[in-house]
Amino acid sequence: MRGEASLRSGDTGLMMRRSHRVFAVLLLVGCLCGAFVAYGSLDPLPSRNIYPDGPAVAADYRAYVGDRVLVSGPVVATEPPTIRLDNGAGDTVTVTVATDRRPAVGDGLTVFGRLRPDSHLDARRAFVVPDGRLQYTYTASALAGLWVLVRLLRWWRVDASLAVSPRVRPLGVRDLLCAAKRRLVSGDDDHNVEG
């Protein structure tokens, strides 16, 4: 701790420690990128309860006909319930679901069942997520993110060697707002070291 406190800008030790940090983070991000690709190349594995999902079905419907799939999507028609599946890259299918659930248009429907030819899905289990519930979830999640962000900014600080350490005394909410304003006005990035 004393070693960290004695570091000042321009100190070679500080620059080294900073570059070590950057290097370590880049290394970890590299690992993560490898994992994104490794996981992305895995196929569904029904024998281990890992089923094709909505994006997979949307991308290649015929590949999964006869298989059990686990999909969810917005209800676009009722009588019978029809959901839209898409993979976010331009592939979309609409699937008619054989179920006794009666969702309204705009609700979400999650279905586990067997995929039939001609855009039919025999539901073995299905449940409805009413329209608005998703809104609630997003709102609560945004609040949570904001709460944690404010707490992190109040209780932690970053020094010039990019080390993150707890503050002795937390920033007041007013200090936080002032700092934000200062940054907006002058764009400066103060690495103030606490006593």
Binding site: F36, S41, N87, A89
Partner: peptide, 21 residues
């Protein structure tokens, strides 16, 4: 940014789900 969008862009399979493992 959907998985498939990244996969199309990069030309390799891709899944964000890793972050949830």
């Amino acid at each position: 940014v959907p998985d498939a969008a990244v996969a199309t862009l990069l030309g390799v399979p891709f899944s964000w789900y890793v972050l949830h493992t």
